[in-house]
Design a protein around this nucleic acid. Structure first.
Lengths: 238, 238
DNA sequence: TATACTTAATGTATATTATACAATAAGTAT
DNA sequence: ATACTTATTGTATAATATACATTAAGTATA
């Protein structure tokens, strides 16, 4: 008799990045817990339904939260350790939430991006939905802390090949400084403003506008916008 | 009543790369099929056992085949479509192989690397194990052709961050030309031999030996070897 | 033994890209 | 008027990437 093969539930969990000032954030949901200790924040996710693949499940989760129809999503890693479900409180919550006995659960982790100013949907199955700075995440259930940690590296790879994703984090009109701070947040390093500006000019898909900041107590910065048509013709990163 | 959640079997499948002359190969196994059509080649893989995570299962599969204890492995993507198991012949084979009714199966795909000259183990559950050039793969069951296709891109990412993996594909002693042809196979482009040689010299972890080819009908090329100690001190790619 | 044949080995000039660095501009606040 | 804050911009240098052809070292054969 051979060892038992693994038959398991499969979920998706989404790390949704947002950006404000000079800081990356991620979207966390507060689960409707049993006897909750602390705030019980976790990554948004769901078990996968029978007719879905993982991409579709992740899309469903994010569409519920953000209302965005064309979300950019990237699968980045599956977390499969049997120890994921070793915390009894986590397992209790799972069975409470899904009305099913769940012994083992693996998850397919996704990354996505969202303008942090976007109005989020009220989803009945959660108490709250909130943006949390990635430098100050609470302790989360399962391996969600580890998932976020590994996801940032993946965002870097993603930016290299598809810099378009940066503009899903910025407002429609943004300043050179905002773009630079975004790079600095993602790569966790400083960029010289002059050199950065030169590279930005080379990115033809970033168009300068004849609009400037208003109501700032210093010289007003010029606004730029991302031009998807030019971008699709020729992709260039920094 | 909500939709049924997915409870499923989970497998791992491994794309093992090998290199010879100027061509990348991948290791395929011939399944002990029922009434086999054609050769029934597929990627080596296995269902995941209960106490394992996916890394451990992939390691087990490859260790069985190659006998290598410290395999370098990289998880690269999970394939989760419900359509994976839409071919009845594939499903029949699964149930024949695993003595279990399998309706849905997702797989976590891995990449690994192996010297193509290595003597492979005879694994009883397969008829044959063979290296197949990645440009001329047979039609394989499930989505294995798609998995191989996507894996080559991942190898490129891997080389960028960890060039050490290249030397798992080459013999212990290799010539400059062999290394160049390996780069050319992976990136599917030509490299100028002079410029390539310059970059190779900058890689301090590649040591020139005082040994040269023998029994070749032209000028004998110098051999080089990879030095892990130097590599671990300072990683540099091409 | 001369000649052809094959692949190995190598340097220089140029273009591109990355980096280091500081002064002036445009506005607000006092 | 002066101080304060952030925006904007150029030049010089270093590092890296690219383009390109000749000589070296051996084998094969006429």
């Amino acid at each position: 008799m051979h060892l038992a093969f693994m038959k398991t539930y499969v979920s998706v969990d989404c790390v949704v990045f947002g950006f404000n000032k000079n800081q990356l954030y991620t979207l966390l949901v507060q689960r409707n817990s049993l006897g909750s200790r602390g705030k019980d924040l976790k990554l948004p996710g769901s078990l996968i339904y029978q007719p879905e693949d993982a991409d579709e499940a992740a899309y469903r989760v994010l569409n519920e939260l953000t209302g965005i129809r064309k979300m950019t999503l990237r699968q980045f890693k599956s977390f499969t350790s049997p120890k994921r479900t070793s915390d009894t409180e986590d397992v209790n919550w799972l069975e409470f939430a899904y009305h099913d006995k769940i012994e083992r659960l693996i998850t397919v982790a996704y990354i996505s991006l969202c303008k942090i100013t976007r109005k989020l949907n009220v989803v009945s199955k959660y108490k709250t939905v909130e943006w949390c700075p990635i430098d100050h995440l609470p302790k989360m259930p399962f391996d969600h802390n580890q998932i976020v940690e590994e996801s940032l590296k993946e965002v870097r790879n993603w930016v290299e090949t598809e810099p378009v994703i940066l503009f899903e984090l910025l407002p429609t009109k943004f300043t050179a400084t905002e773009l630079r701070l975004l790079y600095e947040a993602i790569y966790n390093r400083k960029y010289d403003a002059r050199n950065f500006h030169k590279k930005m000019v080379q990115m033809e898909y970033i168009l300068p506008l004849d609009e400037y900041q208003e109501n700032v107590k210093h010289r007003a910065a010029r606004y730029y916008k991302f031009d998807r048509v030019t971008y699709n013709k020729r992709k260039i990163g920094i």
